[in-house]
Amino acid sequence: MVRVLVNVPKQIAANAPFDVKVLISHPMESGQRRDQLGQAIPRDIINHFICTLDGETVLDADFFPAIAANPFLSFSVVAEKSGTLALTFTDDHGVTQTELVAITVT
């Protein structure tokens, strides 16, 4: 389990875009560095991120190296009604983690 912080506005207006901000604690090792013995450090990044709102995809992204550790994502979502955002990401070890965030549309 990696640490994740998700931030959404407390009050969201229907059909108006709002910002979702996500911080994920992850080393995002690029695979291009070498350790003190000259051995390549294996790549270990989050390679896929998908965000759904009540099952409907709102963001689907492939990640590549050259993203800093502890990546910060910010994207806009439009919602018609209250629901649950599901943020799912997969890293190079194949570990998948999902964070659920309830949003309240007024």
């Binding site: 640490r3 912080l5 901000k21 502890n70 910060f72 910010s74």
Partner: peptide
């Protein structure tokens, strides 16, 4: 700007821990 916004400040991952 990163420091001004707690949602963007990666140090808050440690605060959470």
């Amino acid at each position: 700007a990163m420091q001004d916004d707690d949602a963007a400040n990666p140090a808050f991952l440690w605060v959470q821990q």
